[in-house]
Design a protein around this nucleic acid. Structure first.
Length: 276
DNA sequence: ATCTATGCCTGGTGGC
DNA sequence: TGCCACCAGGCATAGA
């Protein structure tokens, strides 16, 4: 599942292929991915040239002459560069034909991903984007307002860290890893954590994300390689997906539970509940 | 205002 | 082997 480091990796690897390319045609075998009328979308996009690719949190922004295409990969979205249409496989839902006769193809088994189009420069007025909090790898831990949001949240710390309106960029994998490094139990109610503990969590979120970006993200549960998302951070995972295996710190068996509906991995010994 | 439950989707898995 | 129920989960939305 693409989180901030994976989206960053996708952004960087796509730049090489796309910047300067013009869109000649669009095919959309499953147009529901595109959150506007397909003929409008085609009319606007055709003859637009890729000028840049940006990212905020888990959102990708493809910058064109007049528009910004906002793409969220959700759980399984991937982009491929194809040399010919006969290379397309199942689940490639939106395909852009480029100037160089190659194709940019959006692949998404679960069909949860989204593509939206806004006037250039208006990406931060989009409903979903404008609510996003500060990026989890760009946090100033002296941000009193942010600490205060944690202190006022009466729900598990894991749920707070997954709330993109508070901090953005973390998903299920990196939250588990961040809490393990911080020795905080994922079910702990955020409001009972001390300011120091919250700062520790935020510092560790940055450390985890920065390291994952360096390693090109995490690749788990993928059955085919995809452009830009074959990372190496899966070799660094301490608890996520490690249920039944010994904790790398204390050898206690890693447990899997559900927190806020999410599969959650932690070490019961390194991450005990606080005694009040 | 906060928090939780549900729907969107398909492929993989485990039970029979 | 096949059928089926169930699970995985980011985010929008509805509901408590």
């Amino acid at each position: 599942m693409p989180e901030l480091p994976e989206v960053e990796t996708v952004k960087e690897s796509l730049k090489v292929h796309l910047i300067g390319q013009k869109i000649k045609e669009i095919y959309a075998p499953y147009p529901k991915i595109i959150k506007m009328d397909l003929s409008d979308f085609k009319k606007k996009m055709i003859n637009q040239t890729f000028r840049d690719i940006n990212r905020y949190g888990k959102y990708l922004f493809f910058i064109f002459d007049d528009y910004t295409l906002v793409s969220h990969l959700r759980l399984e979205g991937k982009y491929f560069i194809r040399n010919a249409l006969n290379e397309l496989t199942k689940h490639e839902h939106v395909v852009f034909k480029l100037d160089n006769n190659k194709f940019l193809s959006y692949h998404d088994v679960r069909k949860f991903g989204t593509i939206e189009l806004v006037d250039k420069g208006k990406e931060f007025t989009l409903f979903s984007v404008k609510k996003l909090g500060v990026e989890a790898n760009q946090i100033n831990t002296d941000n009193i307002e942010l600490i205060d949001k944690f202190k006022r949240a009466n729900r598990p710390i894991k749920s707070v860290l997954l709330d993109q309106t508070i901090v953005t960029g973390l998903g299920n994998i990196y939250v588990d890893e961040t809490l393990f490094r911080s020795k905080i139990n994922p079910e702990e109610i955020a409001s009972i954590l001390s300011v120091e503990e919250i700062k520790t969590i935020l510092k560790n979120a940055k450390i985890v994300l920065d390291k994952a970006i360096k390693l090109g993200g995490t690749t788990i549960r993928t059955y085919q390689s995809s452009l830009g998302v074959d990372g190496r951070f899966q070799n660094e995972l301490k608890v996520h997906t490690m249920a039944g295996k010994p904790c790398p710190v204390c050898n206690t068996i890693i447990k899997k539970i559900r927190v806020g509906g999410r599969g959650t991995y932690y070490c019961p010994s390194c991450q005990p509940r606080k005694k009040i």
